[in-house]
Simulated assay, not measured.
Amino acid sequence: MTRIEALSKLTNGIDTLLDIGTDHGYVIIDALEKGYIKQAIACEVNPMPLENARQNIAASGLSDRVHFVLSNGFLNVIKPFDGVLIAGMGMHLIKDILLQPHTKAKKYILQANNHIDQLREFITNNDFRIVDEVSIFEKFHYVILVVEPGIMKLSQKECYIGPFLKNHPESLQYYLNLQRILSSNHMRATGEKKRQIAVKLDYLSEVISDLQK
């Protein structure tokens, strides 16, 4: 399964999807064609990618089910939505967008390109809760979080490993890759940084052992 297909599948059950940073509009196209969603709002901060999405969606014959809006995150979005997709961005940008004033959706699908542990911590400190996690490998390892409004408290270990990802056998390769990277960093680190990496390596060893049983 590709990253686009995984993101699309997770939209199932959403009526109107707000795709922030829609880029080429591929997730919207797949989700509409497969019946996961009924309609969508394609949102971009820059005109060129929004036009790319418009052309791709038109070529798929789906323009009548998609509203296009030039907006920095939620700021110019007026039409109602019940699901939000924010994918392919850095963790800090996703945090900034989620902090913008908006009517809370029933479902958020979030895929940050870095610092997944910090995104988990932010989410659970800002009146959201994680309800599922998915790992995908497509040239790189990606982790997708499925989030809804609510309350959840995570330990330091759960922020790093994930409350649900550890239960999915397909996540083993993601954890093994993370272990390789951290092991290399640990060899070069010193002092407190070395100790912090060692703690994370312990977390990984435990979850890898469980998944390999």
Rank of each mutant, 00 (worst) to 15 (best):
M1A: 14
T2Q: 08
L7W: 02
L7N: 09
S8W: 01
K9F: 03
K9S: 14
T11P: 04
G13V: 09
D15G: 11
L18G: 08
I20S: 07
T22P: 08
T22S: 11
D23V: 02
H24P: 05
G25H: 11
G25L: 06
Y26N: 12
Y26T: 02
V27N: 10
I28A: 10
D30N: 14
A31K: 08
L32W: 11
K34L: 05
Y36P: 00
I37F: 05
Q39S: 15
Q39G: 03
I41D: 00
C43E: 00
E51F: 12
N52G: 05
A53I: 03
Q55N: 15
Q55H: 14
N56V: 02
A58Q: 13
S60D: 08
S60K: 15
G61P: 04
S63T: 14
D64V: 04
D64T: 13
R65W: 11
H67T: 11
F68D: 00
L70D: 01
N72T: 03
N72C: 01
F74N: 00
I86C: 09
A87I: 04
A87T: 08
M91W: 03
H92R: 10
L93Y: 02
I94R: 05
I97W: 01
P101H: 10
K104F: 10
A105C: 06
A105Y: 11
A105P: 03
K106I: 10
Y108A: 05
I109P: 07
I109D: 04
Q111R: 05
A112Q: 04
A112K: 03
H115A: 13
D117E: 15
L119F: 09
L119G: 10
F122W: 06
T124E: 08
N126K: 11
D127E: 15
F128I: 06
F128N: 06
I130F: 07
I130L: 13
V131L: 09
E133W: 05
V134N: 07
S135M: 01
I136M: 02
F137V: 09
E138K: 13
E138P: 06
K139W: 00
K139D: 12
F140G: 00
F140A: 11
H141Y: 12
I144F: 02
I144Q: 07
I144H: 05
L145K: 13
V147M: 13
P149G: 14
P149E: 12
M152P: 09
M152E: 15
M152T: 05
S155C: 12
K157C: 08
E158T: 04
C159I: 03
Y160Q: 02
P163F: 07
L165C: 08
N167C: 07
P169Y: 13
Y174L: 07
L176K: 15
N177C: 03
L178A: 08
L178R: 14
L182D: 05
M187A: 13
R188M: 09
R195S: 14
R195T: 12
I197Y: 03
I197E: 02
I197Q: 04
L201M: 12
D202W: 06
D202Q: 14
Y203A: 04
Y203E: 01
L204W: 02
S205D: 14
L211A: 09
K213W: 01
